[in-house]
């Protein structure tokens, strides 16, 4: 599993890096970022889905 943020949609609500800090971070302006290539370790798959389902802008994709 991989995650990706659509930067056109992301408005920096920060739900992703609140809920899944292992998978997402914030940039200098608070927009969500995916460090590395977005690969989700198996034990983080649940939190990845949690982040997806709480992003108000529906900006996170699971690939």
């Amino acid at each position: 599993m991989k995650v990706r943020i659509d930067s056109e949609r992301c408005q920096g609500h920060g739900r992703c890096y609140d809920l899944a800090p292992e998978l997402f971070g914030e940039d200098d302006e608070g927009y969500g970022q995916v460090p590395g290539d977005g690969t989700v370790p198996p034990d983080e798959e649940r939190t990845a889905r949690l982040a997806v389902s709480n992003c108000p802008e529906r900006a996170i994709e699971i690939l």
Binding site: Q11, G12, H13, G14, S53, N54, C55, P56, E57, R58
Partner: peptide, 18 residues
């Protein structure tokens, strides 16, 4: 668990202070 609420707005005016 699933809570895509819009209390801080949606789109370009998302609350700066959220």
């Amino acid at each position: 668990e699933v809570n895509r609420h819009a209390a801080f707005g949606l789109g370009i005016h998302r609350c700066v202070g959220s």
